[in-house]
Amino acid sequence: MTDRYERQRALAQIGEEGQRRLAKKQVAVIGAGGLGSPVLTYLAQAGVGTLRLVEFDTVGITNLNRQFLYTEKDVGRKKSAAAREKLALLNSEILVEVRDAELTKENAEELIGDADVVVSCLDCISARLIVDEVCIRKKIPVVEGGVSGFFGFVLCVGGDGPCLECLGYDAAMDQKEIPVLGAVAGVIGSLQAAECLKILLGAGEPLYGRLLQYDGISGTFDEIEVKKNEACRLHRRAEAGKEK
């Protein structure tokens, strides 16, 4: 059969069964900006059956150096509506659900829903920590990614691995207007999409407990083994409310 998935179905890690598996999966992508653009694009093109997109913002002209889901014509529009349109053009066989809402402690659980994987594409650390906590409680793997300037990281959160708070991240570290090179957001978002697909397929070695760090200035990647912090308050809260 010749179809859009031919080139990836040929992979030993996917095949007919893997492609069917992807079609049955649901991924929540929190944030449809610089990271969300490549993540949503590649997950849609790979044939993930349901993409839930959580984004409250509107498209601004300063988004267009990196957020390739949008065009100049979208400036002033809701990102959720513009992204849904673009993704539907890319792949009409999948379902794209949009939640036009800002993720908070109060609504995070409902927004994440029953996702098989959550991809965190947020631009603030405080919301990332909320996502990690809800997902550890609900036993949903999270693919974290972050960028700043020429630098970025990817880490999968779940199982016995550490979360961002285990590593020392704190809500007080939130910064405004973080400078980002579009191509670097593209690198990190693409890696997040690949990690998400690996988890959905049960293939390869997702980055649990391994912080992958990208340095676009020197053109190098580093992998740092990272461990859970037994005193992590986020983990303690999440474990206390864990679903059986």
């Binding site: 610089g34 594409c121 631009d123 990332r128 991240y169 910064q175 973080i178 957001a185």
Partner: peptide, 10 residues
Amino acid sequence: LAVFPPVGGG
């Protein structure tokens, strides 16, 4: 030791 600044943009 490993030391990182915040990298939290999206």
